[in-house]
Write a protein that binds this DNA or RNA. Sequence first.
DNA 1: CTGTTAGCGCATTCAG
DNA 2: CTGAATGCGCTAACAG
Lengths: 334, 334
Amino acid sequence: MVTMSEVARAAGVSSMTVSNVLNERRRVGAPTRARVLAAVEELGYEVNLTARHLRAGRTDTIALIVPSFHDYFGEVADEIAPLVEAEGRHLVLERTGASPDCEMETLTVARMQMYDGVLLSVAGLDRKRLERVRTTKPIVLLGERDVPDRFDHARLANEEGARLATAHMIEGGAHRIVALGCTLESEHTMTSDRRIGWEQAHLAAGLPVDERYVVPIEPYSSQSAREALLAVIASGLPFDGVFAATDVIALGAVAALADSGLRVPDDVQLVGFDNLDVSRFVPPGITSVDPNHPELARTVVGLLHRRIADGDAPAEHRGVPVRLVVRGSTRARR
Amino acid sequence: MVTMSEVARAAGVSSMTVSNVLNERRRVGAPTRARVLAAVEELGYEVNLTARHLRAGRTDTIALIVPSFHDYFGEVADEIAPLVEAEGRHLVLERTGASPDCEMETLTVARMQMYDGVLLSVAGLDRKRLERVRTTKPIVLLGERDVPDRFDHARLANEEGARLATAHMIEGGAHRIVALGCTLESEHTMTSDRRIGWEQAHLAAGLPVDERYVVPIEPYSSQSAREALLAVIASGLPFDGVFAATDVIALGAVAALADSGLRVPDDVQLVGFDNLDVSRFVPPGITSVDPNHPELARTVVGLLHRRIADGDAPAEHRGVPVRLVVRGSTRARR
DNA sequence: CTGTTAGCGCATTCAG
DNA sequence: CTGAATGCGCTAACAG
């Protein structure tokens, strides 16, 4: 392995001068500079990033830590990557499998040293465990969970999105709407926040809120959603709308409705959440709440860069607005 | 920041003893050991991974480098992660945006230093540029492109999969099958390999190969695929089957067929490739070539660990077999 | 404009 | 079983 001092020797300068040339730091005389660059080329020298990190305390790398790589998080990550690179840093993804222990592990002093900052999509950790985080490195949290005030945090307008989705089906004539993949718990989670929006739309329309229509899904997959909705159909509980808490859940619902010969939107209206690519293309097009990934990406990257620049800035908590994208799976046209 | 020597001082030992305790290296006396661990706990010490890397030349981290994070690669990454972790290493993902320069950049000596090994999903690099890679660190390449012999490499049985898909539609009565998202180029790429399989199935069945049925897509998205197939329909070119080079393309085809009032599989049969989750759930279920992600993941992780253990082992080139998953979008039942 | 000194935090080597 | 010396490769700070 070629080191900086070998280059220095070959160019007849000190290694400090090599460092200055490569980092375009101080002004180095043109002839010296040329000799150094020639030696670099000649020897095929490349900087040792690990040594630079140790010495300079800076990695120029940001980590995005997500529960899993596919679907929703993969799409968000693709939005975030260019923004991080635009600031001259690298982005790497790590995966937690939604395990609280694994999420906590990524926030240890040891692991955080590897990065200039971390974006963590919180799936498993609650406020209490987050209180115990010791590192003072820049962290921005994404997600629905409640988090300690000291962390920068961005969350989607989940309740609002669910309310819009449900109200839109009510406007199209639905009045018995399954909340598929939602939960009744009182803690703030994605599934409970979206259930609250579903409730709000019912109350606003003067419709009764019937807890039998809240159908949790476990594990959280299209397959479970399909089975769960088939079970609802088999039970005889009447319904004319499905609010799916995510598009992945909506996809399972589409399959279950087709299995049962129910037509969308004539017999049952359907709205999803996330506006995944797939919802545009599955006939008749699934109306979905657009979580505004570009805006979310800009928000969290902005918060992180601000935090890296000023570690003492007061923490910010931002909500990212959502909007409804109307397609063929619902009857109202706005 | 707490360092190892501070812990050593607190425990009344040398930093070497602390290191030995934490790495469970040599036998350390039980009482000494207890004192060290107490001091670690007391001070909240955590190892500095960067310093360890510099000194030990090992990061215990593997990088998986992909063109983009979503869809296919996200799903593969989720298969690979547990296998890497089972060997006691971390997995991180990086993204190239399919840019050859960016892929090449990830294979520089500097960037490779950060990892014990790299899995690179080759999208943009050709054999010629790969020849110029200088690093001797462990690298395993994934993908269709031709690569220099010295690299370990795994590729899917693309031709075979496309052949199975096409033959299956022919068996169901199709004889004018669009190869949507395939290309006519002669270089080995995913889109050309799959076109070759489509050809082979025609030849085997004694059907003519008509190049008008090869419809490239640019950019490679569901939206472009939808538009491209709508253009085929508008052109009046008769067809009764669509072989979509990927499920993402198949999704666009489903939308285009629905837009045009064509029924699947009655008017047009459809087969995709990748067996993404979505293909199970889009009515009537999209028949798809299953690329066997678990097997692919086992293969590439196995190759990489072998290479890390023995840098001089001869390079291996593996094909991963595929199989056809039959669903409602085709007429033959096997 | 360039060189010298020093040390980031850890682990290998060898001596006790 | 434990400790001292040494250096991985780089860059901050200062000196010339």
